[in-house]
Measured scan of single mutants.
Amino acid sequence: NTKMVRFKKGDSVGLRLAGGNDVGIFVAGIQEGTSAEQEGLQEGDQILKVNTQDFRGLVREDAVLYLLEIPKGEMVTILAQSRADVYRDILACGR
């Protein structure tokens, strides 16, 4: 149940992230009207890879910085997997 989305970065990627470290990086929110939303990313999706950067094992701050450093107008390719069950557990633990 993995999906790959590809879009051109606007002012931002339009994602709020949660998790990090051993639990993985998850989409915690999506800005309305962004390409990330239009391409089908959803809250609870685990981000496995962005462009050439493996997101598994990253701390959340490093994942956020990586997304911020992608220049506006560059193509962004995100490999994600729907993991809403794991995401709910992360929220319940306050991570």
Rank of each mutant, 00 (worst) to 15 (best):
T77F: 00
V86K: 11
D45G: 02
G94A: 11
K49Q: 13
A28E: 11
I25E: 05
G10N: 09
T2V: 06
I30A: 02
L65N: 15
K3M: 06
E32R: 13
Q81G: 05
I78Y: 00
G20E: 06
G29A: 12
V23K: 09
G19L: 03
F7T: 00
L67Q: 05
R16K: 13
M4I: 15
L58Y: 06
R16F: 07
E43Y: 09
A84M: 15
E32L: 06
K9W: 05
Y66E: 06
T34K: 01
Q42D: 07
R16G: 03
K9M: 08
L15A: 06
G73F: 01
A36T: 03
R88V: 06
V27E: 02
F55S: 01
N1E: 04
L65P: 06
F55L: 03
E61C: 06
A63D: 01
C93W: 11
M4P: 02
I25A: 05
V23W: 06
V64G: 06
K9Q: 04
V59E: 15
T77V: 06
C93V: 13
K3I: 01
D89W: 00
S35T: 14
K3E: 01
G44H: 02
M4S: 07
F55K: 09
F26E: 03
K8F: 11
K3P: 02
D62G: 04
K49G: 02
L41Y: 00
L79F: 14
G29I: 02
L58V: 08
T34P: 04
I78L: 04
V76H: 03
T77M: 07
E74V: 02
Q81R: 14
E32T: 12
E39K: 14
L17V: 04
D62V: 07
A84V: 13
V23F: 07
F7K: 09
R88H: 13
R83D: 06
R83S: 07
V50I: 08
V64C: 11
V76C: 05
V50F: 05
K72T: 08
R6W: 07
D11R: 04
G29M: 01
I90V: 14
L65E: 15
L15H: 05
I47Y: 15
G19R: 04
E32Y: 00
R95T: 14
K49E: 11
F55G: 04
G10M: 04
K3H: 01
V86P: 08
Q42M: 13
G40T: 10
Q46L: 11
A92L: 13
G57M: 08
F55Y: 10
Y87F: 11
Q42A: 12
R60A: 13
M75N: 08
A63E: 00
G10L: 01
E37W: 14
K72Y: 10
N51R: 01
S35E: 15
F7N: 00
V13R: 05
Q81C: 09
K72I: 11
E32C: 06
A36R: 06
G40R: 01
E74M: 07
V76T: 04
D45I: 02
G94S: 13
N51F: 02
I78E: 01
F26Q: 02
I30W: 06
V64R: 11
R60F: 14
Q42L: 09
R83N: 12
G14H: 09
E69S: 15
K49L: 03
Y66P: 08
Q46Y: 08
G10T: 09
N21M: 14
E39W: 13
V13Q: 03
L41D: 07
K8V: 13
A92M: 13
L48C: 00
G19T: 04
G94F: 07
R6Y: 06
V5F: 10
M4G: 00
N21I: 12
Q46W: 02
T34A: 11
Q81I: 10
K49H: 10
R83L: 03
E43Q: 08
V76E: 01
G29S: 12
G24F: 00
G24I: 07
T2N: 11
R83F: 05
E61V: 01
T2P: 02
L15I: 15
I47S: 04
E39T: 15
I78C: 05
G73E: 03
T77N: 11
V50P: 01
L91M: 14
L58H: 03
G40P: 11
F26L: 05
G29N: 06
K8P: 07
V59H: 15
L41V: 07
M4N: 03
V50Q: 04
T34Q: 08
R83A: 10
Q53P: 03
G40C: 03
G57Y: 09
E39C: 15
N21V: 14
L79M: 11
K49A: 12
F26A: 08
F7E: 00
A63G: 04
V23Y: 08
A80F: 14
I78W: 01
Q38P: 02
R16E: 15
A63F: 06
Q46D: 02
D62A: 13
G33K: 07
L15Y: 04
R56H: 08
D89P: 09
L15S: 02
V59C: 15
L79S: 06
Y66F: 11
K9G: 06
V27I: 12
V86W: 09
G24L: 02
D62L: 08
V64K: 12
K3T: 02
E74S: 13
I47A: 01
V5K: 07
I90N: 09
K49F: 10
Q81P: 00
L68D: 15
R6T: 11
G14C: 04
R56L: 06
M4F: 11
D89H: 11
I90K: 14
E61L: 04
G14Y: 04
L79H: 15
D85C: 07
C93M: 14
N1F: 09
Q46E: 13
A63M: 00
I30R: 05
V23H: 09
A63H: 00
G20S: 11
D89L: 05
S82F: 02
D85G: 09
Q38F: 13
T52D: 15
D89K: 15
V59R: 15
S12D: 14
T52K: 10
V13D: 10
Q81M: 12
Q31T: 13
L58C: 06
V5N: 04
V59Q: 15
N1D: 10
A92E: 13
A92H: 13
L79E: 13
L17G: 05
I90M: 14
S82A: 11
R56C: 11
D85R: 09
R16A: 10
E43L: 11
G14L: 03
G19N: 02
D11M: 03
E39V: 14
S35P: 14
K72L: 07
A80L: 07
E69G: 14
G44P: 06
R95V: 10
K8G: 06
G14K: 04
E32A: 12
V27N: 03
N1H: 07
G19Q: 08
N1R: 05
V27K: 11
G33E: 02
V50Y: 00
K3G: 03
L65I: 09
I90Y: 14
L15C: 04
G44C: 00
D85Y: 07
I25S: 03
N51V: 04
A36P: 10
T77H: 09
Q81V: 13
A80Y: 15
R56W: 00
G44Q: 01
N21W: 13
R88D: 12
Y87G: 10
A92R: 13
A18N: 08
L17A: 02
I90T: 11
F7W: 03
A84P: 15
L15R: 04
T52H: 13
Y66W: 03
L17I: 08
A28F: 01
Y87R: 10
G94C: 06
G29H: 11
D62M: 12
S12K: 12
F7D: 07
E74T: 12
L65Y: 09
L15V: 13
A92W: 11
D62N: 00
G14S: 07
E69V: 07
L67E: 04
L41P: 05
G73Q: 07
E61I: 02
G19S: 04
D85W: 03
D89C: 07
L79W: 14
L79Y: 14
V50T: 01
N21P: 15
I30C: 05
N21Q: 15
I47P: 02
F7Y: 06
T2E: 06
R6A: 05
Y66A: 09
D54C: 06
P71H: 09
C93Q: 15
L68F: 09
D11Y: 04
